[in-house]
């Protein structure tokens, strides 16, 4: 089943770091309402692609179109407001804050309180905060089953829970698309299944389009509608999970050819 239109289109995106071609003319379509997975070995350029999409890196060439609009030159901080949320491979939570405050921060760009009203905490500020709290409790905290930790400082949480809070923070935006960077890395089987279920629920109950980077291939194959394979910064294959399962390019990307080029160093700890 294919969704009617592409929510996001990446066209010919290239990115260099010194001598490394992190992305080499990458094309990617993300169908609205789908779960699209990006896989590929370490250093393939997956996270770099996210960084281009979210505006942290400026590509040397190519465009990113979101919701019918070319966002290649939109400043990073304005992209959240368009409905793009993401999580990070290396957890990037606000360590000095509680879980609730981290989640509230995720909603930053859809709130309006200005400095004056914030200082006085009258009118808009108070009403907005109250409503936000209510929304977050229902839509995020309950949804992700993290009520028991809501008032804890994030620095006191386990790795798995921190990853879940990152997910929660992204959800608080009420995004159109959510980009997850290895959401189950380092998790055990049970935690992984929980997250997989949440991702499916996001798509089915909340209607959010999901972009997913993940090394856990069995999970990818289980939940995604579409899989794109990156290797050395190039899109080498893409199709349904079924098509990708035994695709020679995929096997090559993971196992390598006999005369394989030297593998780039591991980037994640």
């Amino acid at each position: 089943m294919r969704a009617a239109r592409n929510l996001m289109e990446v066209r010919g995106v290239s990115l260099r770091f010194g001598g490394i071609q992190a992305l080499d003319s990458v094309d990617l379509d993300v169908a609205e309402g789908s779960i699209t997975a990006i896989i590929g070995p370490n250093g393939a350029g997956k996270s770099s692609l996210y960084n281009v999409i979210s505006g942290m890196y400026r590509p040397a060439a190519g465009t990113v179109t979101f919701d019918g609009r070319d966002i290649t030159r939109v400043p990073a901080h304005k992209r959240a407001g368009l409905g793009i949320a993401r999580s990070f491979q290396n957890i990037a939570l606000f360590r000095g804050l509680t879980v609730v405050d981290n989640i509230k921060l995720g909603a930053h760009s859809r709130l309006n309180t200005g400095l004056m009203s914030a200082l006085l905490f009258r009118g808009r500020a108070a009403a907005e905060e109250e409503q936000l709290r209510r929304e977050i409790e229902r839509e995020v905290i309950e949804f992700l089953e993290i009520d028991h930790i809501r008032d804890m400082p994030v620095s006191a949480l386990s790795y798995g829970l921190q990853k879940r809070v990152e997910l929660a923070r992204a959800l608080a935006l009420r995004p159109k698309i959510i980009m997850l960077d290895e959401p189950v890395a380092g998790m055990n089987r049970e935690e992984t299944e929980d997250i997989a279920r949440f991702i499916l629920d996001m798509k089915e109950e909340l209607g959010i389009t999901v972009l997913l980077i993940e090394h856990d291939l069995s999970m990818v194959m289980d939940i995604s509608d579409h899989v794109a394979v990156l290797n050395f910064g190039k899109l080498v294959a893409n199709g349904t999970p079924h098509e990708m399962q035994n695709h020679p390019k995929v096997i090559e990307a993971y196992i390598g050819k006999t005369d394989a080029e030297p593998t780039p160093e591991e980037t994640d700890a």
Binding site: H77, L105, H108, L120, E128
Partner: peptide
Amino acid sequence: ASRNLFRTRVGRAFVAIRDRDLSAEVIGID
């Protein structure tokens, strides 16, 4: 007033900048 500030998005954004510059930008903080 300064106490109020940190009950709202403005104050939270300040703390976010202190704790994690770049992810603050990604969640939409200028």
